[in-house]
């Protein structure tokens, strides 16, 4: 992937597939380290599945037998000296607290660090594709703190206006963009 934000989009889509109703994306940066955390309240994975998701020949897709999402994230993290950790609670074992957490760390000064790229567009793409799901987004550095919670937006829009409407997506993009500018 050319941008880390593309990995973010791709990994968060796994949470959509896991029937999550709330997906959290958190990016925390210090001068040296970028930590990406994606959490969801989806169906979770059993231990056996959890062990195998880092394997490219593990996938939930039906068009073929390889899945590259997690392996590509792992590659992007490890090539900077970082790592990916995944914890998960399967719904059968944890009926009330099921879900998955993916934490990836990256060393920003490493020559193979992939730039973040257009994270705003990854967030709006997720909302456009799954307007019924709630997303929280937080990007914190020494200089700024950008945040979004679709539950808040949904509270204003009410039942009748879906979050995925082009006018709303445009507003969300501008809302995030202005937070990055300030």
């Amino acid at each position: 992937m050319k941008e880390l934000s593309m990995n973010v989009l791709d990994i968060a889509k796994n949470s959509v597939k896991a029937r999550a109703t709330l997906i959290g994306i958190r990016i925390e940066e210090t001068e040296e380290v970028l930590t990406l955390t994606i959490t969801d309240n989806g169906c979770g994975m059993k231990n056996e599945m959890l062990r195998s998701v880092i394997d490219p020949f593990c996938t939930t897709r039906t068009t073929r037998k390889v899945g590259m999402g997690i392996p590509l994230l792992k590659l992007a993290a490890e090539q900077t000296g970082g790592e990916v950790r995944i914890t998960s609670r399967h719904e059968e074992e944890y009926p009330d607290t099921h879900g998955t957490e993916v934490v990836a760390t990256f060393y920003k000064k490493h020559i193979d660090f992939t730039p973040m790229g257009d994270i705003i567009s990854s967030v709006t793409t997720l909302i456009q594709g799954s307007p019924e799901i709630d997303f929280t987004f937080l990007h914190v550095t020494d200089q700024f703190c950008v945040s979004l919670d679709t539950r808040e937006l949904r509270g204003i829009l009410g039942e009748e206006i879906p979050l995925g409407e082009p006018e709303i997506i445009r507003w969300i993009a501008q809302y995030l963009n202005e937070q990055y500018q300030n």
């Binding site: 992937m1 050319k2 593309m6 989009l9 791709d10 889509k13 897709r61 899945g67 590259m68 999402g69 590509l72 257009d118 567009s121 990854s122 709006t124 793409t125 456009q128 594709g129």
Partner: peptide, 16 residues
């Protein structure tokens, strides 16, 4: 198409 293959190939700007 927005699976891993699509995203890696540049589907996000196309969708936008």
């Amino acid at each position: 198409g927005m699976a891993t293959c699509g995203i890696a190939a540049g589907a996000r700007p196309v969708l936008n």
